[in-house]
Design a protein around this nucleic acid. Structure first.
Length: 203
DNA sequence: CGGCTGATGATCT
DNA sequence: GATCATCAGCCGG
C-alpha cells in the first residue's frame, strides 16, 4: 500500500506550454494521475518524445484520420493508440486546435498505487512497472476509452505537479521509429532508473 | 547486462 | 498485404 502524496496539484491548460518540443521537455518531472475506484495511480514522468506536425514519423503527418484525430485537439488532450496488436500508448496533444502534434509519454516513476499497478503488470520491480510506453499504459490502465479525453478538464485522468523538481534533462534521438530518425526529440531525466531501454539510454 | 526474435491486430495503402 | 512510437522471454558473456 503506497502512501498518498498530498501535494499533487492539477495542471490547467494555461500551465502547459504550447508546442510539442516545449511540452515534451516541460512534462519531465510532472505527474500523471489516474483515479480509479480501487485507488489512485500516480507517477512522475521521466521520459517523453515529441512528434511534430511537419515530422514524417508523427501519426498526424498525413492529415487527420479516425485514428489520429485526437492529435488535432487543443494541447492537453489524450491521444491513445493501439500498437503491435498488444499495447496502448498515451500521448498528450501539443498544439492549438487543428494542428496535429503530440508528446508520447514513454516512462514514469511510480509514486502511488504500486500494488494496483502490479495487479495489472504482474510482479515486477517498481522501476519496471511503467518503464516503456506499453508498460506505462498497462500499469495506468490506459486504453482506447481515454482517447480524446481532456487531461485539463475535471476527471479521473489528469496531469499534475509536485514539489520535487525535475533533475537534469537529457536529449537524444527517438526510439523505435524508421523515419526522421536523427531528430533529437526524446527527453528524459538523466540517471533515473525508470527510463526505458538499456542503461546507455538513461545516461 | 544486452542483443535478438516472435507475437499480434488495427490501420492505411 | 505491409507496417507498426513494443515487450517478454531466451540465450550468451
Amino acid at each position: 500500500m503506497s502512501v498518498p502524496i498530498a501535494s499533487i496539484r492539477r495542471l490547467r491548460r494555461s500551465d502547459l506550454p504550447v508546442g510539442a518540443v516545449r511540452l515534451a521537455r516541460d512534462l519531465i518531472g510532472k505527474v500523471l494521475v489516474h483515479e480509479l475506484p480501487a485507488g489512485r495511480l500516480a507517477g512522475r514522468i521521466v521520459e517523453t518524445e515529441a512528434y511534430l506536425a511537419d515530422d514524417a514519423s508523427c501519426h498526424a503527418f498525413r492529415g487527420p484520420t479516425l485514428r489520429n484525430r485526437s492529435l488535432f485537439l487543443p494541447h492537453g488532450h489524450a491521444y491513445v493508440y493501439f500498437i503491435y496488436g498488444v499495447w496502448f500508448a498515451l500521448n498528450v496533444s501539443a498544439e492549438p486546435a487543428g494542428v496535429g502534434a503530440g508528446v508520447l509519454l514513454r516512462a514514469v516513476e511510480p509514486l502511488e498505487g504500486i500494488d494496483l499497478m502490479r495487479r495489472r503488470r504482474g510482479p515486477a520491480p517498481v522501476t519496471d512497472l511503467a518503464r516503456g510506453p506499453g508498460r506505462l499504459a498497462t500499469a495506468f490502465r490506459i486504453s482506447r476509452r481515454h482517447d480524446g479525453l481532456d487531461l485539463c478538464a475535471p476527471g479521473r485522468l489528469w496531469l499534475g505537479r509536485m514539489r520535487r523538481p525535475a533533475g537534469r534533462i537529457g536529449t537524444s534521438v527517438r526510439v523505435g521509429i524508421t523515419k526522421e530518425i536523427h531528430r533529437p526529440l526524446r527527453f528524459y531525466e538523466r540517471g533515473n532508473p525508470c527510463v526505458s531501454g538499456p542503461a546507455r539510454q538513461r545516461v
